[in-house]
C-alpha cells in the first residue's frame, strides 16, 4: 500500500461523517440555544428558552411554573426502552441457548431465521402488528375464541408498543447472546452438575455469568435504538403517549419549534452517549481485571 493511499483512503469517510454527522450535531446544539423563528425555522442567538421549556411553563403572569410534562415524556421513554430491553433479554437467553444446543446445520438455519425478519422494512413490520392488534384483528379473534366477551382493545396500549419494540429489535439481542453461549464449553455445565449443582445452579452460576458479555452487549444494542424509536409510539401507541422520538419529530413537523426539538434531541443524544460511556468504562474495567 503506498504512503499516499494511507492518507486519502480515509478522507472520503471522514469528509462524509464530518459533513453529515459531526458538524450537523454541533449545528443542532447551536439551534437548541437559538430562537424560534416567526414562521417555523429559527434564528441564531443564545437563549436557553428551549431547555427551560423542558422543565417549566410560563404561567398567567409570566412567572415560571414547574411543569413535569416533558420530564414525564423523558421518563416514559427510558421506561419503555428499559422494559423492551428487559423483555428481549428474558426471551433471548433461553432462545439463544436452545439454538446453541442444536446441530451445526440447524444452528446456522435458526440464526438465519432470527436475522431474516430484520431485513424486512421496519414500516412493514410495525404495520403487521397494527393489523394483528387492530379492530377485529387476529388478537381480538383469538381473545373471543377463548371466551373473552368484552374485548379490551389491544391497539394503542403500552402493551402494543412494547410488543412492537421487542419485535423490532430482538434480533440485536439474540445474536450477541448466541455468540456468547455458543462458545460455552458443555463440560462446564457438566462440571457444575458433577459438583452437586442443580439445573438452576448451572444456569445462574455458569451459563449467565459466561454469557454476560453478550447479554450486556445485546442490551445496549436494543436499549439505544428504543430510546429514539418513532414508529412504534406513533402507529401502535396511537400517538397518544409521546416518547422523545415522536416529540422531536413533532417539533420539526406540525409544531414547528426547531429550538425545542433540537434541545430534546440534545437531551436524547446526551442520554445515549452516557450509556455508551458507561459501557466503555465497564468494558475497560473488565479488561483490566483479566489482565
Amino acid at each position: 500500500m503506498s504512503k499516499g493511499f494511507r492518507i486519502w483512503g480515509l478522507v472520503p469517510a471522514w469528509a462524509l461523517m464530518l459533513l453529515t454527522l459531526i458538524l450537523p450535531i454541533f449545528i443542532v446544539a447551536g439551534v437548541s440555544v437559538g430562537e424560534r423563528g416567526a414562521y417555523g425555522g429559527f434564528e441564531w442567538s443564545f437563549d436557553l428558552t428551549a431547555y427551560r421549556q423542558i422543565l417549566f411553563t410560563l404561567g398567567w403572569t409570566d412567572e415560571l411554573e414547574f411543569d413535569p410534562k416533558y420530564l414525564i415524556i423523558i421518563a416514559r421513554t427510558l421506561g419503555y426502552a428499559a422494559g423492551a430491553t428487559a423483555i428481549s433479554l428474558l426471551l433471548a437467553l433461553p432462545v439463544a441457548y436452545w439454538i446453541s444446543l442444536q446441530s451445526a446445520r440447524d444452528k446456522a438455519l435458526l440464526i438465519y431465521l432470527v436475522t431474516l425478519p430484520f431485513w424486512v422494512s421496519m414500516i412493514v413490520r410495525v404495520y403487521a402488528w397494527l393489523i394483528i392488534l387492530g379492530n377485529d384483528g387476529m388478537a381480538e379473534t383469538v381473545y373471543r375464541f377463548f371466551g373473552g366477551s368484552d374485548v379490551p382493545g389491544f391497539l394503542f396500549t403500552p402493551g402494543a408498543m412494547l410488543v412492537g419494540m421487542v419485535y423490532s429489535y430482538i434480533p440485536l439481542m439474540i445474536l450477541p447472546v448466541y455468540a456468547a453461549v455458543e462458545k460455552l464449553d458443555p463440560a462446564l455445565i457438566e462440571a457444575s452438575h458433577d459438583l452437586y449443582g442443580s439445573r438452576w445452579t448451572a444456569l445462574r452460576r455458569v451459563i449467565i455469568p459466561l454469557a454476560s458479555p453478550g447479554l450486556v452487549g445485546g442490551s445496549i444494542l436494543v436499549f439505544v435504538p428504543c430510546l429514539g424509536t418513532v414508529l412504534e409510539p406513533m402507529l401502535l401507541g396511537g400517538g397518544r403517549q409521546l416518547m422523545m422520538g415522536t416529540l422531536i419529530q413533532n417539533q420539526f413537523g406540525g409544531a414547528r419549534d426547531w429550538p425545542f426539538g433540537a434541545a430534546i434531541a440534545m437531551v436524547l443524544l446526551v442520554l445515549v452517549v452516557l450509556v455508551l460511556i458507561l459501557n466503555a468504562r465497564r468494558a475497560t474495567r473488565q479488561l483490566e481485571v483479566q489482565a
Binding site: 453529515t20 439505544v224 435504538p225 422523545m244
Partner: peptide, 22 residues
Amino acid sequence: VVNLPLLLPEIVLAVAVLILFS
C-alpha cells in the same frame, strides 16, 4: 467515526441533517 451512525439514535441524526441542509 465510520461507525458513528450505528452508535447514535437515528432521529438525532435525521434532525441534524435536516437543519444542516436547510
